[in-house]
Amino acid sequence: MRIPMMSVACKQVQPLVSFQGGGFQAELNMEAFFRRKDKVVFVIGPTGTGKSRLAIDLATRFPSEIINSDKMQVYKGLEIATNKVTDEECRGVPHHLLGIAEPHSNFSAADFCLHASSAIKSILDRGKLPIIAGGSNSYIDALLNDHDHDHDHDQRSQFRRQYECCFLWVDVSLPVLNAFVSERVDRMVAAGLIDEVRRMFDPAADYSRGIRRAIGVPELDELFGAEARGASKKTRDRLLQLAIEKIKVNTCLLARRQLQKIHRLHPQWCWNVHRLDATEAFLKRHRHQDADEAWEKLVAEPANMIVGEFHYGEEIAAMVPSTTTAGACAGPVLSSPVSIAAVAGATR
């Protein structure tokens, strides 16, 4: 269950450019060839793996600001359904691109490139490290490749010529992650997910645009339609349980698709990718053991060492104990394929 919103903890940074649904056009900057590259950290991974937590952990240890790269969290509203970080969870760390787009607009990958590029520049101008965190790999791929998927990926894009990038890949075994996201859906329901989505119900809604694409919105349409028609309590209860099961299954399928896309894109990012296996921390949480200690040992501390070396130079390695085997281009074999039936079973 989400912690109640606090009034002063999290600073949401306003976008430097107004959202008008425009595109992103990069211009070649020859200065980038002759100066030391600025650095950007990416925190990637499937939904539910703790990307936001790790990004905030890092931002409390390094002078950093966070740029959201989640397709649904970029929209205003549906804080529970989109699992936005609360003010309390932000721990005072400034966040960009979080809840900036109107719910009915269509915030494209080109829009993300435009806003993210402006945010990166503003963060660097303040002498801080940009940390881009979120599960929308298409946004990240568009940013890295200047929103041009037709060019030869062996030729570095303008973004990668300008910036040096470090990727932290938070990974969790799919069966373990499936169980966790199922439990998370139950917590979201207990926190008010149904009423939150009900408030924006529209029988004529277009579920292909804006925030209505978020998992949890289309799945509840049949329930709310039945309520509007005066269906019996028995029918409403049945439709509610079916909707919750659909939300769980679709969230698990999303996690699988995101992981598969990371494996497809991983070779393109191979110059500085570090995989952090958080499975044991999630297992301990499920067993009601000391999950925070496991998270710190397996994820936060190794990430701190990696980012420290990346940000400050190799000499930092002599000052920080090595607690990770995750190295550049470390990549596991893709988890075994999971059928829809298996995913549905894992969510029960």
Rank of each mutant, 00 (worst) to 15 (best):
G92R: 02
F282V: 12
T82E: 05
T60M: 11
K51C: 10
I123N: 00
S208I: 06
I120N: 02
Y139T: 06
V170N: 02
H274F: 11
T82F: 02
P302R: 02
V85C: 03
A255V: 05
N83G: 09
T279V: 04
I67F: 02
Q14W: 01
C329N: 15
G225H: 11
I194D: 00
G210L: 07
M305T: 07
A281K: 00
Q158V: 13
V343W: 01
M5A: 15
R238Q: 14
V170A: 04
K233R: 14
N83K: 08
A243N: 02
K248N: 04
G225L: 12
H151S: 15
H96M: 09
R287M: 09
S322E: 11
I215F: 03
R209M: 13
A326D: 08
G313I: 10
V41H: 00
I340L: 12
R199I: 06
E227H: 04
I340K: 08
E315V: 14
A81Q: 01
E102N: 11
L168N: 03
V8F: 09
P15M: 11
Q162R: 14
A330R: 10
A226P: 06
F159W: 09
K233M: 11
T325A: 13
A231V: 12
L240E: 10
G127P: 05
Q73C: 06
V170E: 00
R160H: 09
R199H: 10
H288P: 00
R287Y: 08
S117R: 05
N250Y: 05
N68P: 05
I44E: 06
V189W: 03
A204D: 15
H149T: 11
L97S: 03
R348G: 10
G92H: 03
V41R: 00
V320S: 04
Q12I: 15
D70M: 05
R257C: 07
L254T: 13
Q162S: 14
P94A: 11
L143G: 04
T279N: 03
I80V: 12
R198P: 05
D152N: 15
L193Q: 02
V338K: 03
I100G: 01
Q258P: 04
F33Y: 12
A81P: 00
A346E: 09
A116S: 14
R161Y: 06
V13I: 14
I66C: 03
A190Y: 00
A205N: 05
H263G: 08
H115K: 08
L114S: 10
A32P: 01
D57G: 02
K261H: 09
D111P: 01
K248I: 07
A81H: 00
P203L: 09
E293M: 11
E164Y: 03
D154N: 14
V176P: 01
P218I: 12
A341K: 11
L78R: 00
Y163E: 06
I123P: 01
L177Y: 06
F282A: 01
C270Y: 05
A300F: 07
V217K: 01
V273N: 03
L124M: 04
W169K: 04
G99K: 04
C270Q: 12
T47Q: 07
Y75S: 05
T47K: 01
F62H: 08
H96R: 09
